[in-house]
Amino acid sequence: MGCFHSTASRQCPGHEDPVFLASQTAFSVSEVEALFELFKSISSSVIDDGLISKEEFQLALFKNKKKENLFANRIFDLFDVKRKGVVDFGDFVRVLNVFHPNASQEDKIDFTFKLYDLDGTGYIERDEVRQMLIAILCESELKLADETIEQILDKTFKEADVNLDGKIDKSEWHQFVTKNPSLLKIMTLQYLRDITTTFPSFVFHSEVDEMAT
């Protein structure tokens, strides 16, 4: 284990061994290879360099690379674990793993906390939630009066901010999500369950011995 080396066709920056990635995640080796098919398609959509740029990520999400979206930026930043402005295959698989139906609830809750903690202060603050609300209203072309936005914020913080300090800490978030499990829906991608049927071509590119899968 751990000494498998990819051959030339698989060489790209950050491309880790499928057997090693499968050992770290809920994915099987075949599933990691199927994810590589998806990764190749996304990472070659603008520049074929074996890395996913923000532009390529947005193109895959919206089929339009010019679309700026606060949330897509945020998700991309969480995929960009090494803070290099690009996502390599290993991080792509490890972050998608959090979205696996079998991933732990704790990991999903942690991920959403980081997602909404826009400024990385360790708290989800009222200003951050307001900023996200305004962004979703713009995105959906829905108009709400400022007063209505404040009412939504009041209601949310009344439920979530148990110690009434005006911000949501990690333990408050944990309790809030446990009471409102619908908030974790975005964290589970059923597609990941049968990724090998979505990308069957992985079989033709597989370089791992069948015994290892």
Binding site: S41, I42, A60, L61, F71, I75, L115, L144, I152, T156
Partner: peptide, 25 residues
């Protein structure tokens, strides 16, 4: 009615948070 929802249910409606579309290749 939006005021009956909590802020995060609204936020989660963003297409930017719904990664399912990554799989529509």
């Amino acid at each position: 009615k939006p005021t009956a929802m909590n802020a995060f249910d609204l936020i989660n409606m963003s297409k930017g948070l719904n990664l399912g579309s990554l799989f529509d290749t």
